[in-house]
Amino acid sequence: MPNAHLKVWRGDTGGAYVDYDVEYEEGMVVLDVVHRLQATQAGDLAVRWNCKAGKCGSCSAEINGKPVLQCMTRMETFIPGETITVAPLKTFPLIRDLVTDVSWNYRVAETMPELKLSAPDADGHRRMAQIDIDREQEFRKCIECYICQDVCHVIRDHPENMEKFAGPRFFVQLANVSMHPLDQNPAKATVSHGFGLDYCNITKCCTDVCPEGIHITDNAIIPLKERRVDEYYDPVKALVRKVFGGGDKK
């Protein structure tokens, strides 16, 4: 069995990278190697994981500097003998080893507007056409791994923006609310106003790293920005409103 050379962050903020050699087999992913390390050499190595199949979004880490899911990073993608650096997510406060405090995301989640759907039809069913929800179903693929939040430079390099910037994961949720065909929540109209959407400079790192392949920038963030342009910056729409009065926004 070949050996993997791992450089793993150990400890809290006062910690350091520690080198390990771990045997691995063909077909393993980084999380398997980390687990073997845990079972054989470092029993107290802290790492989050649950499903091991890219569906729960727990094992996010930075491997060779790139934010990824450990369970979806296969050992074959490395050059044999290459040193593999496994670091915790750097945007969030470190707890220990590979585990960070992601509670900021849960606080932001509480600020998200709720859906309030229109009443069902007389027979008790709500009717929505597939073409009205397929765009939304992409947003709902999100596994909340927070890799997009981690890579976003708006907060990664400028943590002070966390107070006013919801981050890509939540722009996806806001787009979900904004585009829902049956939602009647008055708050819907304002989803593109707050949450720091204009801090995004669409450099697309969130889209680049999304393990679910959600087109965060093109399908969520830019459409939200465009919805705001409708209200404030579109010269034709402004003219129409001036001439015909009122806001005929749908």
Partner: peptide
Amino acid sequence: QVEGNIQYNPGW
């Protein structure tokens, strides 16, 4: 026997 301390210790 587990190593380390009580902070986020999967072995424990």
